[in-house]
Structures are given as structure tokens and as C-alpha cells.
Write a protein that binds this DNA or RNA. Structure first.
Lengths: 340, 340
DNA sequence: TGTTAAAATGTAAGCGCTTGCATTGCGCGT
DNA sequence: ACGCGCAATGCAAGCGCTTACATTTTAACA
């Protein structure tokens, strides 16, 4: 008659190995503080019982989880995947586990996720972008959870960040478009509220337009939620007016792909009839036809540096310093070499 | 002089509200067991202190986490994203949190992740596909963690599954290709070891070939890791021989997109020179040019049903029953309507 | 061989919460 | 006005682990 087999505990292992629970614990966490012979006995008991330490108990006792949390706006598309992958690999190499949650671009969901991750004892947190309620930062401070921002660099922000200058990057790309002879340059932006990346990209686009005397272009902007369909709709919207832009710059690659699709559907040739650009350089940008001119972001490098910085903040209780990374433009088929 | 503000605990709240910790706990977990006046006091204290319950402590005491874990082979591409999204939405609606980990298609990583999730107290687990070491199932049984498999349906398997018949689906698609007049039909498969979906898709492809007297085609198969590049290389590989297949069927859409790219690069027209098919019907399949003929999988439905089934298993300690879902073929441009 | 310090191990006090059970307080019937 | 039953609250025992401190063992030295 087998009794209900509750998962074995440290104590079970200790009993089986004929030692104290403290010794078993040390065996697992600091093997060199235990003599080889004992260690062997204990390990045998662990294996025999199929013991797995209870994480919650360990956390409670040790007040460390070796877990860091990341909250990203979306998992549906690959924008954050590559960087996050690198982040998690680097974390893993340093003995940390990554927990990921997604906020669906909703501030209130993000806040909920932050609390969930903190409650779960995350030793540190990675957030995307700076733009969120001050109260969130207050909370994080009170809970003293080291926090780092990625995908956006802002020197004077409340928490350190590892990222790039979204504004300058977008300005650079816009200048390139202008150089190609375009004068009517519209923009499809993601939702800017609560999203500094989106807002800064719009700002960069405007910067370039104004500097080049294209102020009238600067009103031709549509803001739309994230998604291919949304990008398509926005494109149609911009093309509906009497004056059709000759270039459509999108706040991210996903929107740009939508625009590309819609252009195709509407029988407009890209880049002949209209040039289209994206931002992020996700894998998709190379795959679509025509391939997409976009801003290349150092995803992996960002992920790795973020991991290092965050672990440093966690382990040495240091404040953490911001790092600005460089972006570059990837010229591809969706923007003509020369319009004129 | 402010002392180091440790995060507030239940006791702090209790003290501030002038009640016992038990009352505060009940306020949070069973508000109706506490009289309104007290509840107000307690809630005020909670807010004032910015209290967040310590999850680990709660888990230890209650032995329930209201968390379920899912381990998917990859996050890099969208194959599992849609289904997982639905899974998590349904879970959320039922008061559960989803923790996701990815195994990079490596069995040993998967096992590690399973242990990590179990140690973290996951009340239930969602795994992709049935094919893994028996010892893993032994472990799960001993820890008595309800487990469900998705993306593959196998009635006689050790744990219940919500999925579809990969073999029959692939056979159906292959038959459609044969009907189009193709006789030299090669396959690019994902790695089959430890991946029943991949293996079953290959089996389905072979079934159709053999039934239609195309046995010689059945040797024209390349197995390759997951990824667009890998798909491209596999395509080139298959086209390198003296006899060029007129149709290339891929084990998933990502490989198919790679094949598509390579065909383009090699100057082969799709579907005129070579037809290409995928499997999964991810968003990408509609976006590439030409769009991809593929097997549509009921991602969202699968996710929702999986969530319901798993929660049922967790809450009612029921064994859980398997459900088979239907797939259908999405005919698109990459497979000619009629070759002859 | 006796001392003593260092190494190995054991003891037991929590970590912050939930919950069974004991206690208190209240409204009601008589 | 009294006792009853039930609702509201408090008390305190863990949950499984880590770790400071106490104790025992070992080994090294005179």
C-alpha cells in the first residue's frame, strides 16, 4: 500500500543520508564546505529520492532568488525576441534565471506584471523604455528592486538605461530619405503615450523635416496600435488624401510590413511609387518583398550588456550606469537609391 | 533619519491597522469573511504602506501558486506565440499566471526548465509534444504536478494532450500536392529526435507518397534545425542533385520561408519552377511573396482548451482527457492551382 | 601524547504567510 | 435580562529552507 507520495523534502534527504538538514543544504549550496564522503552519501540520497529543492522555501530563507524579471510590450512579434534571447543567455551564464512577462503595450498591465514579478522575488527587473508613472519607480525604490531600462537611452532618467538614441536614429534615417529627393514624407507611428521609443522616433522625424524646410510634411502622421493590419490601415489612410506622400516612414518594422502589404494590394510599386522604411531590423525586414530599409539596432549587444549591468546592480548594490549604443541604417530595396 | 526601509510585511500592515495578521490575510484572500469596517481600515494600511504580499511566503503556507508553467521549444519565432497568447488569456481569466520558458529544442534544457518551474511551485505544466524521456514523466508524477501536452494529439500517451493529428494533416497536404501533378516531392523536416510533431509530419508525407506509388520520392528528405537560414540551406541541398524535385514540402513555415528565399536567390520561380509548402500557418506565411500554402492549425482554440483542461486538472485533481482538434489546408500562391 | 585551532557537522531560530481552532462579541428568541 | 448560535477575530502552528552559532571531530604541533 503506497501512501500519497508528497514531494521529498530536505529533511527526508537528511534522514536517508543520516546527516542533519544543514549538511544537506550545504551540500547543495556550498559543496566545498562538506567533506567528500558525506557529500557522496547525501548526493546518493538526493538521487534516490528524486529530490528537488522547494524554491519558495529557499527564497524565503535566503532572500535571494537568482531570478530576474523582464517585462516586454509584446511577445507576438520578434522585436524584442533577439535582444531578450541574448539577455537570457548572458543571465544564464551568470547563474540567473529569466522570467518574462508581456504587457500588451498597456501601462496598467505592465504595472500588474511588475508587482507580480517583485512579489515573486525577482532580484532585478528589466523594463522597456522610460515612460511610465512615477509611482511605479517609487514602488520599485521602496521594494529596493534594482531596475534597468533597455531599448531606449536617456541619460537623465530616474533609472539607468542601456539603449540607443531613438530620436537621433530616426532623424538620420529621415535625412537619408530626404537626400533621396523625397519632399512629401509621411509617418506611421506606434502609439506614443507611455512609449518613449515611439515618441522619440516621431520627434526625430520632425527634427529632420524642419531642418530641411519640409515643415508641411510634419503634419502627415498617423498614430496606430502595433500590428501588421494596423500598419496596412494606416498606410491606406495616408494615401487617401489628395496629396499622396512619396515616402512613408514607419515607427517599426511591423508597421512597415503592413504598409508594404497594403501598397502591394493597392497596386502601388515600392519603391517606385512610394518608398517605405521601418525601424528595428527584425528578421522579417529581410524577408519581405521588397526588403525593407530600416534602422539596425544592436539587439544582442544590448541584451548582453543589460544582463551584465543588471547582475552588477543586484550583486554589488551599485546604482548602475547608463550606456548608449550605436545604431546604423540598413539600406534595402524599399527605399530607392535615387528617386531623382 | 530614515532607516533602511525593508519591504513592508503582513505584520506591519496588521500593526498599522490595529488587527491581527490573520485578519489582514483574510482581508486579502477572502474579503467577505471580514466585516466592512475592518476591511476599510486594513485596506487603508495596505495602501499607505505600499504593501505587496510576499509570494514565496504565500506559496509556502498555502501550497498553491495559481501559476502554471509552459515550456516551448522556441520563442524566437511565432509558431507558438498565438496559441500561447490565448492560453495565457484564458488562464488569466481564471485567476492564473503563466510562466513561460523556452528549451531551444534541447531535451536537456527542457528538463532543466521543467524542474525550475516545478521548484517554483507551478500548479500545472504545459508541454509541447509527447516525445521525451520517461524519467521526466516519472518525475512529474512523483511531484504530482498535473501536466498537459499541446500541439500534438496522441490518444494513448502517458499524459493527456490537446492537439491535432500531425501525421494525418501532413498526409492530407501531401495528397493535395500529388493531385497537382507533382511526382518528385522532397521534404525539409525539422529535427525529429525528441520532436514527435516533426517525426509525425515526415511519417504523413511518406504515407501519402507510398500510397500513391511515389516511393522513390520518399528518400528525398533533409532534416535540419529550426530557422530560416537552415531552411534555405536545406533547399539548396535538395536542389543540388541531378534530379530536381518539383515540390518541396517543409515541416514548418519557418523552414518554408527559408526555402522560398533560397529559391528566389537561385532564380527559381515559385510555384512555376518549384512548389513550396509549409506547416503551421503563422502570420509570416501570408506575408512572404509568394504567399505560402500551409496547414492551418487552430492555435487560439488549442490554447484556450488547453488552459481550461489544465485548470480543471489542477483544481479537481482530475486526470484530464485528450482532445483532438481539426486542421485545414490553406491554399496560397506557393503551390500552383494546377501544374499540368 | 596533550593542546589547540581549524574543519565538519549539528542545533534551532527564523523568513512571511495561511489556516484550523479557540475566543470574543453580537443579535435574537423567550 | 439571559442564554444561545453564529459571525468576526485572534492565536499559534507550521510550510521547507538557510544560516549564525554551538558543538564535535580532525589534524597539526610541541
Amino acid at each position: 500500500m503506497s501512501k500519497i507520495a508528497a514531494a521529498p523534502t530536505l529533511e527526508d534527504v537528511a534522514k536517508k543520508a543520516g546527516v542533519s538538514t544543514a549538511t544537506v543544504s550545504r551540500c547543495l549550496n556550498a559543496p566545498d564546505r562538506v567533506v567528500a564522503e558525506t557529500r557522496t552519501k547525501v548526493m546518493a540520497a538526493v538521487t534516490a529520492l528524486g529530490y528537488t529543492p522547494n524554491f519558495a522555501a529557499r527564497v524565503m530563507a535566503a532572500k535571494r532568488t537568482f531570478t530576474v524579471g523582464a517585462i516586454i510590450p509584446t511577445m507576438e512579434n520578434a522585436i524584442f525576441a533577439r535582444g531578450l534571447q541574448a539577455f537570457q543567455e548572458e543571465l544564464h551564464a551568470r547563474g540567473y534565471t529569466l522570467l518574462v512577462a508581456s504587457s500588451a503595450y498597456k501601462p496598467e498591465v505592465e504595472e500588474e506584471q511588475i508587482r507580480a514579478l517583485v512579489a515573486r522575488g525577482a532580484d532585478g527587473l528589466l523594463l522597456i523604455g522610460h515612460d511610465r508613472a512615477e509611482s511605479v519607480y517609487d514602488y520599485l525604490e521602496r521594494q529596493s528592486v534594482p531596475t534597468l531600462v533597455a531599448w531606449s537611452y536617456q541619460a537623465k532618467a530616474r533609472v539607468p538605461s542601456i539603449g540607443f538614441d531613438n530620436r537621433a536614429a530616426m532623424r538620420g534615417l529621415t535625412e537619408a530619405v530626404i537626400q533621396r529627393g523625397h519632399t512629401c514624407i509621411a509617418m506611421v507611428s506606434g502609439v506614443c503615450a507611455g512609449n518613449d521609443r515611439a515618441a522619440l522616433r516621431v520627434a526625430g522625424w520632425k527634427d529632420a523635416l524642419l531642418e530641411n524646410g519640409l515643415a508641411d510634411s510634419a503634419t502627415r502622421i498617423v498614430e496606430t496600435p502595433y500590428g501588421i493590419e494596423a500598419g496596412a490601415a494606416a498606410f491606406a489612410n495616408l494615401m487617401a488624401g489628395p496629396i499622396k506622400p512619396t515616402a512613408i516612414m514607419c515607427g517599426n518594422d511591423v508597421l512597415a510590413v503592413g504598409a508594404l502589404q497594403k501598397a502591394h494590394e493597392m497596386g502601388m510599386a515600392v519603391p517606385k511609387d512610394v518608398a517605405i522604411t521601418g525601424f528595428d531590423d527584425v528578421e522579417l525586414a529581410r524577408i519581405v518583398t521588397p526588403s525593407l530599409t530600416t534602422v539596425q539596432v544592436p539587439h544582442r549587444d544590448m541584451g548582453i550588456q543589460a544582463a551584465r549591468a543588471l547582475v552588477d546592480m543586484v550583486e554589488n548594490k551599485r546604482a548602475g550606469t547608463s550606456v548608449q549604443l550605436e545604431t546604423s541604417i540598413r539600406f534595402r530595396a524599399s527605399l530607392a537609391r535615387n528617386t531623382q
